[in-house]
Design a protein around this nucleic acid. Sequence first.
DNA 1: ATGCGTAGCCATACACCGTATGGCTGACGC
DNA 2: GCGTCAGCCATACGGTGTATGGCTACGCAT
Lengths: 187, 187
Amino acid sequence: MRCMAVSARRGTPLTAEEIRSTALRLIEAGGVDSLSMRKLAAELDVNPMSLYHHVANKTELIREICLGNVVPLLDLPPDDGTPWQDQLRALAYAYRRLARTHPMLWTYVHNHPEVIELKEGGLWDVLFRILPAAGVPEDKRWRTADVLHGFVSGLLLSETLGHIAADQADETYETAIDMIIRGLPEH
Amino acid sequence: MRCMAVSARRGTPLTAEEIRSTALRLIEAGGVDSLSMRKLAAELDVNPMSLYHHVANKTELIREICLGNVVPLLDLPPDDGTPWQDQLRALAYAYRRLARTHPMLWTYVHNHPEVIELKEGGLWDVLFRILPAAGVPEDKRWRTADVLHGFVSGLLLSETLGHIAADQADETYETAIDMIIRGLPEH
DNA sequence: ATGCGTAGCCATACACCGTATGGCTGACGC
DNA sequence: GCGTCAGCCATACGGTGTATGGCTACGCAT
């Protein structure tokens, strides 16, 4: 519906989604730290201050990208009747796919807790569906869920940062998930 | 030996060690990102540019702090005759002590790989001493070492960032190490 | 003694950052 | 016609890392 005053240099008005996806592209191209409101504005062919009519500030922008453009990409395994081992494996690999799709943002999030302090997506629901089946007693489920998440995040962080040889990454991850499954009560 | 021209506002000349320890203090007080050369200089009662006669630049300064003032604090378990489980546990707890001593720098390092790409301290030597005793076949030792390091780092990151309830942190870590030990071949 | 090299320090300046403030334009409801 | 307001932009402020070059005063060779 072609609304309001329109940029001098652009045909169509900005949208929050356009800003987010462009920002995400810049982030994945050069890291979160290399994203600046000014570069983002230049990429969108717009004055830096125009961005602030669509996003509150930079950190809020990043938060919205995470919640709107990244977290939803995690496809959680359904609650079919398959053994808990298979479901846990599926969850782990979905998580890895997410990390590899947006490595820069993923590493950023994993040490800027303020971005998503809320437990991400339905991941924890799935974990709490799996753990009882794995024989983890109720009073240890929270603890175990934290451990599993910490383990997997840490390993993915190592991989993303290049601490793990690229040609070994697949086998390493498999080894890791096997180790986790073996470590749960109902081996 | 009181050498050369001396600061107008200070009695003694700067030293690299003084710069590093002050920077480390500021980092642990407010996070790595809040450290600036200007604040650091102010804290040392010196002109910002004076720092550059003792350190190459900011990232190099941080690297030197890690290598000189943090990594050496990791006290690796000795090669006494104790079972590998005990040695692994000792290593894990030494690592945790380090993370809790310098949480800010620790989290920073764990997603700025360029800082210490070199495998930190003698940690890996100890791991490679333990893994054979734990029954890990030679062709899987590197992989397993990567996994263990990723796991433990990730969990400590979670803890440091406050994702784990403080009153549960001890038990959670214990649970984690138990799980790792159970997951290794020679349970 | 005298002059020089140089270690240590500092003043200035540049390019970049996030964003507060306030003003412009033009579409809309009344 | 007119007020409101969405969208955009120009300017400015205080912060950042650090390049450049100049100052001082010591140690040393002459």
